[in-house]
């Protein structure tokens, strides 16, 4: 492997975006109230964003000087379709989490994840999704009492009914 660093596709754009972001944060830091005095809430943000702008500028210059990697393609080596697909799935999961509820959205997410990534038989995928979801629900909701979004699934009522049912069985 040669020691000369090559620029990956998209790297120049990324470093420029970082520089623009850093400059924006730098500008924002001056808008924090009371900027100017040494003890102001703005002093550390100004210092940190100044360092960001300087280092981001150095990186942009270095990156633009590097020759582009001849063999790598953005859509294949940096951001292949499978990653775009998974990121889209995560986005949809995040959006659905509160309105639809944890149980239903997580089940769909896991099932699709297994279908795309594991590519097992459908029955296997469903079984896996249910088992792992049950485990996560047991640990988080029942043992550690993290109240996960209920959405359209009325799980608290189910749990109350179940508890009542167990009580009357005893």
């Amino acid at each position: 492997m040669s020691r000369v660093l090559l620029r990956h596709p998209g790297e120049a754009l990324f470093s420029l975006a970082v520089l623009v972001g850093a400059a924006y944060l730098f500008w924002q830091a001056f808008h924090i109230a009371d900027a100017g005095s040494l003890s102001s809430p703005a002093s550390l943000p100004i210092a940190a964003s100044t360092i960001m702008v300087i280092s981001a500028s150095i990186i942009v210059i270095k990156t633009l000087r590097m020759p582009l990697h001849p063999e790598l393609r953005f859509s294949h080596h940096i951001f292949p379709p499978i990653i775009a697909l998974v990121m889209a799935l995560l986005l949809i999961f995040g959006l659905a989490l509160e309105p639809v509820g944890f149980l239903l959205s997580a089940f769909c997410f896991l099932l699709l994840g297994f279908v795309f990534l594991y590519r097992g038989k459908m029955l296997w995928n469903i079984g896996l999704a249910i088992t792992s979801l049950a485990l996560v629900y047991l640990i988080f909701r029942l043992i550690f009492q993290v109240v996960l979004p209920e959405g359209i699934v009325p799980e608290r009522e189910w749990l109350a009914q179940l508890a009542q049912w167990f009580e009357t069985q005893e």
């Binding site: 995040g94 989490l97 944890f102 594991y118 792992s132 996560v136 988080f140 996960l148």
Partner: peptide, 24 residues
């Protein structure tokens, strides 16, 4: 198998992040 492990890591990351402060 990675095809099983990776979706589970995603799920765990999301539930874990939610659990920090019960917040989306």
């Amino acid at each position: 198998p990675k095809g099983i492990l990776i979706p589970l890591i995603f799920l765990l990351s999301i539930v874990g992040a939610y659990a920090i402060n019960n917040s989306i």
